[in-house]
């Protein structure tokens, strides 16, 4: 049984087909990279897999449970770092974590202890009393990540986790993700930082205009003498652009 599985997952927005018949199979304990240019359908896929968006057609299973049939059961198992971070402006970073724990069934003492450890790990302890609407984008992202990790989910969905994060925290997050995967958690991440993806993920897929154009392991890529970046640029065509001669 695969930990994340999609069968012909499709999402239309009017006439636009954002995701077209997506089929993915990700094993338990894997770190999977989902790559693609802007507007390719990455975030739409994450939204469908996490219950934020209803698919137009197809099916998505997390740990064998359908997100369409049992959304609450699935949501208890997953942790999500969404594209828009989904934070409440009127709460501090600490209050976000305190709110999250009981919702996932954690006791207050357990919530506080885990929250403090996560804040230390993500270098957020000193800024825990800052309102998120006044926090930097990196702090906001780390807050959302801490919320995703707090209940120790079996499956983690991370939409652009390294964007806007300082190098030290970025390194900590990478180490944390590797540790999580080694302990059996499945991680589905999207990122534009291909060097990081190459060092972190086990397998990846490239989506362009809502369709998977390439899906393989990093090992296969490297043994073919290629890098993920080369493969990405090969599949993502770039139209000829005019030189901006007036610049500079």
């Amino acid at each position: 049984m695969f930990e994340i599985e999609t069968r012909n997952l499709t999402r239309n927005f009017g006439r636009l087909v954002a995701v077209n018949g997506l089929n993915l199979q990700i094993r338990k304990g894997a770190i999977f990279g989902f790559l693609g240019p802007n507007g390719a359908g990455k975030s739409t896929t994450v939204k469908m897999l996490t219950g934020l968006l209803q698919p137009t057609a197809g099916e998505a299973l997390i740990s064998g449970v359908s997100i369409l049939d049992s959304p609450l059961e699935v949501k208890k198992k997953i942790g999500v770092l969404p594209e828009d971070l989904a934070l409440f402006d009127s709460l501090t970073i600490w209050e976000h974590l305190l709110m999250c724990g009981p919702i996932y069934g954690l006791k207050r003492t357990e919530t506080e202890s885990r929250a403090m450890q996560l804040l230390k790990y993500l270098d957020l302890r000193d800024s825990r009393n800052v309102y998120v609407d006044q926090a930097s984008s990196g702090m906001r992202k780390k807050c959302s990540l801490a919320m995703a990790l707090l209940h120790n989910p079996a499956v983690l969905f991370l939409d652009e986790p390294f964007e806007g994060i300082d190098p030290v925290s970025s390194r900590n997050i990478k180490d944390l993700l590797l540790l999580l995967a080694s302990r059996g958690a499945t991680i589905f991440l999207t990122s534009h930082i291909l060097e990081v993806v190459e060092r972190l993920v086990e397998s990846f897929a490239i989506i362009v205009d809502g369709e998977i154009v390439c899906s393989q392991t990093v090992e296969e890529t490297l043994s073919a003498g290629q890098t993920i970046e080369e493969l990405f640029l090969k599949h993502v065509r770039r139209d000829e652009v005019e030189q901006l001669e007036w610049i500079g």
Binding site: S90, L91, E95, M99, C100, P102, I103, R108, Y131
Partner: peptide, 28 residues
């Protein structure tokens, strides 16, 4: 404002359970 005020009578008031956690947010 930078930082939230330290424990006030309102933030000290917490109702246990998921609804209580969310209610504290909405109360705020």
């Amino acid at each position: 404002k930078g930082r939230s005020q330290k424990l006030t009578i309102f933030s000290a008031l917490r109702i246990p359970g998921p609804a209580g956690a969310l209610a504290a947010k909405d109360f705020r």
